[in-house]
C-alpha cells in the first residue's frame, strides 16, 4: 500500500505541483486536496505548499487559515497528522497557531530568490528523520515575507525544546530572529519552513537533491 500525502491547493498556490512531484519521487502517492473541501480523502500526511494563497490579502496566510480544508487539518494536526508547511504554507501554519510566531516583511524589503544553505538542527521530526542533526543542505529560498519573529520567551522555548529545525547559514537572508528558517510544534509532527525543499529533488531542475529527505522522512515514518 502506498502512502497517501495530500497537497492542498488554495487559490494562488504556486508550488502544489512541485510538492506533488516530490512526493511521487520519494515513493508516495500525491493526493490533490482543494481548499474548499473539508474532506482530507484518507491521506496519511499533508503538505501546505508555497505561493500566494488568496493573493496574500490581509496578511500572508490569514485568509487561507480559515478555509474549509484548514478546519480539518488543524484538528488532525493536533491529533498527530504529519503536516509540512513550505513558505506560504509556513505562514498559514503560523496564522493557524499550529506553530508559534509570525513571518514578516524581509528586513531589506526585497523579494529574495537564491539557493540557500541551511543547517538541520533537529532530525527527529516527522519531516526530517532522514537527515542527521548538524547536516548542511542547500535548497532554494524565494519570498518577500520570510522574516521569522516571535517574542523572546517563545524564541527561548523553541531553542530549549529543540524546536528550531532549520537555521540559515552563510548570512541571514531576511532578518529572521536567531537565523531561524524553520520550526516544529511540541509533538514534532507539524513542521514549517520558508525555504523550498520541493524544488531540490531532481538534479535536472534543482541546485541539489537535498530536499528529497523531507518527503522520504515522512513516508518512512508512516510506513514504520
Amino acid at each position: 500500500m502506498t502512502t497517501r500525502v495530500g497537497v492542498v491547493t488554495f487559490p494562488g498556490s504556486l508550488d502544489d505541483r512541485d510538492a506533488q512531484r516530490a512526493v511521487k519521487l520519494a515513493g508516495g502517492e500525491p493526493v490533490a486536496l482543494w481548499h474548499g473541501d473539508k474532506d482530507l480523502h484518507q491521506v496519511d500526511a499533508v503538505i501546505l505548499p508555497g505561493g500566494f494563497s488568496y493573493g496574500d490579502y490581509l496578511r500572508c496566510g490569514a485568509i487561507a487559515r480559515f478555509s474549509p480544508v484548514m478546519e480539518t487539518i488543524i484538528d488532525q494536526a493536533r491529533a498527530g497528522l504529519p503536516v509540512l508547511g513550505i513558505c506560504n504554507g509556513f505562514q498559514v501554519l503560523c496564522e493557524s497557531h499550529l506553530l508559534p510566531g509570525a513571518l514578516t516583511r524581509n528586513d531589506h524589503l526585497h523579494f529574495i530568490c537564491r539557493d540557500q544553505r541551511l543547517r538541520v538542527e533537529n532530525a527527529a521530526t516527522a519531516w526530517t528523520a532522514d537527515y542527521t542533526a548538524g547536516q548542511e543542505i542547500t535548497v532554494p529560498l524565494k519570498n518577500g515575507e520570510g522574516g521569522y519573529v516571535a517574542d523572546e520567551r517563545t524564541l527561548d522555548e523553541l531553542e530549549a525544546e529543540g524546536r528550531v529545525v532549520f537555521r540559515y547559514l552563510g548570512g541571514n537572508p531576511n532578518g529572521s530572529r536567531r537565523d531561524i528558517a524553520g520550526i516544529t510544534n511540541e509533538a514534532g509532527n507539524v513542521v514549517g519552513l520558508m525555504p523550498h525543499p520541493e524544488h531540490a529533488v531532481e538534479a535536472l531542475t534543482g541546485p541539489t537533491i537535498d530536499g528529497l529527505g523531507f518527503f522520504t522522512s515522512a513516508l518512512r515514518k508512516l510506513v514504520a
Binding site: T104, R105, D107, H108, L109, G147, D151, G175
Partner: peptide, 14 residues
C-alpha cells in the same frame, strides 16, 4: 499596527 518591538522596514523606508 505592528507592535512597537516588531521591526517595520516599510515604515523605515518611508
Amino acid at each position: 499596527m505592528l507592535k512597537p518591538e516588531i521591526l517595520d522596514p516599510q515604515g523605515q523606508a518611508v
